[in-house]
């Protein structure tokens, strides 16, 4: 079995999980194995939706003790489910939770783990994964020597494919209490926008923004285009009051949106590493020699303080961010 650990949010399957399920379905077809979807929580209402993405079996671990996420409890139930079903491949979306539980579950099973993969295939019945290393400056092909093979899939990379499966629901045991650590509280950031790693459109600002207040014009463009705002390391480290969670680059977030607009970012190697997986890159910079232009699909040599407001205006006029 190819087993996919899935996350629910407000009764719906999170997008990175649907991507992992779609990737899992492809692997299952390639190797003639069934696809299982695993859910855990106080309630797994909404798990049945996994059938839409081709799940043959939907496993639900429900219990009051699983209402709050616990690294050790979830790792245990995931490893137990892999064992009970004889699964050879375990996938999870490379989300905050997926990247927390998957390596712990892998260690529990003595399994090899490839994180944040961008490619998956079955070669002679074994999993082969491609993943960015050095923040995308190179790609490594990973093969496994362990019986169970674990990978987390980078959000926004694997296409979501709807393909109805039987989706037989089956409950699996939830570990009893006394966990080593438990999440007590979620502190949401104001605005509640999607995370950079999952965003489809990112508008990023660098040193050329001059101060933190000026990021307002990027927010306005992001609103018009339906995107979120990021920043370069130079901007985050400049004491402009920007949180490090906005940082894109090798020591920040590695992102792969459809559209990345770099405003006043020169394009240091460590920044390019974090965003070169973007499908289309737009560079807006005063300096025509800036290295960012080397990776840009479209370049605008000009003052971002003139160009960005014009873009916002034009985007609103065209109504592009609505679709």
């Amino acid at each position: 079995m190819i087993l996919v650990f899935c996350e629910l949010k407000d009764g719906k399957i999170r997008k990175p999980s649907t991507e992992a399920l779609s990737a899992g379905r492809r692997l299952a077809d390639a190797s003639g194995q069934p696809l299982g979807a695993l859910f855990a929580g106080a309630s797994c209402a909404g798990a049945a939706e996994a059938a839409k993405y081709g799940a043959d079996v939907i496993l639900t671990a429900e219990g009051a003790t699983l209402g709050s996420y616990s690294s050790d409890a979830y790792a245990q139930l995931v490893a137990d489910a892999v064992k009970a079903k004889g699964a050879t491949v375990l996938l999870a979306g490379a989300t905050a939770m997926g990247k927390d539980v998957a390596p712990r579950a892998a260690a529990r099973m003595g399994a090899g783990y490839a994180s944040d993969v961008t490619g998956l295939s079955m070669v002679e019945g074994k999993l082969q994964a491609v993943r960015p290393v050095y923040a995308g400056k190179a790609f490594a092909t990973i093969t496994f020597t362990s019986a169970v093979q674990v990978a987390s899939t980078r959000p926004n990379v694997f296409p979501v494919v709807e393909k109805a499966g039987p989706g037989a629901v089956e409950s699996v045991p939830a570990p009893a209490g006394d966990f080593k650590s438990v999440v007590k509280e979620i502190l949401a950031k104001a605005g509640g926008k999607v995370d950079l790693t999952e965003a489809n459109v990112i508008i990023s600002g660098g040193r050329g923004m001059k101060n933190g207040d000026n990021f307002k014009i990027l927010e306005e463009l992001a609103d018009a285009l339906g995107g979120v705002v990021g920043a370069s390391r130079a901007a985050v480290d400049a004491d402009w009051g920007l949180p490090h969670s906005m940082q894109v680059g090798q020591t920040g977030k590695v992102v792969s949106p459809t559209l990345y607009i770099a405003c006043g970012i020169s394009g240091a190697i460590q920044h390019l590493a974090g965003m070169s997986g973007s499908k289309f890159i737009v560079a807006i910079n005063k300096d025509p020699e800036a290295p960012i232009f080397k990776v840009a699909s479209y370049g605008i040599v000009g003052d971002l303080f003139d160009v960005v407001p014009e873009l916002t205006k034009a985007a609103k006029a065209m109504g592009v961010g609505k679709g």
Partner: peptide, 26 residues
């Protein structure tokens, strides 16, 4: 148990295009 069997550089990005003109036109 997870072995790197090959390492490769990412493909070069296709050459981009500069957009000329006044800010509004760009």
């Amino acid at each position: 148990v997870a072995v790197v069997s090959s390492l490769a550089l990412p493909p070069e990005r296709p050459a981009g295009r500069l957009l000329a003109g006044e800010p509004a036109a760009q």
